[in-house]
Design a protein around this nucleic acid. Sequence first.
DNA 1: CCCTGATTCGC
DNA 2: GCGAATCAGG
Length: 177
Amino acid sequence: MNWTDERVEKLKRLWAEGLSASQIAAQLGGVSRNAVIGKVHRLNLPGRAKAGGTPAAARGTKRVAAPARPANYPARVATRTVPRTIGATALKEEIDLDTVQEMQYVPATNVVVPISRKLSLTDLTERTCKWPVGDPLKDDFHFCGVDAADASPYCSYHAKLAYQPVAERRKAAAARA
DNA sequence: CCCTGATTCGC
DNA sequence: GCGAATCAGG
């Protein structure tokens, strides 16, 4: 990947916003966090006050773990978790995601997604739908982001796609065997 | 072990 | 200029 003016601008903006190098790398795509850090140096951008510390921008907002990847989705390029998850909340999220993994996942390819707030990974919160949209390797990849009900990791629309009735799954399994 | 940025150095 | 390897730290 090459550092086009556009990508450099995005890098500058995200770095100024306080995103970590790995998060920026994930959003730019096709580069490692090392590449980002290296570029930051070469651009003589101001470094972080102290290494290893939490960036100011990330400290204020509650963030959640990234959703488990559906079986037919390619692996994400870089990081799959976001820092600053609050203790009890993090545990709750993990339980929810485990449940999701046991369910049969319906690919979103042949489905029309009605609305989307087009959130990137770092914009996800506890109450946003974490249904992935598009190819994680491409630039326009995002998450649904519509308000999710209660403890669900998905909005009501995507929850219906994610969770299939047990009877349905039994039928599918039987047909396969 | 997860993560963070910083630096070095072969390419 | 680029970025992987490495370092130093939380």
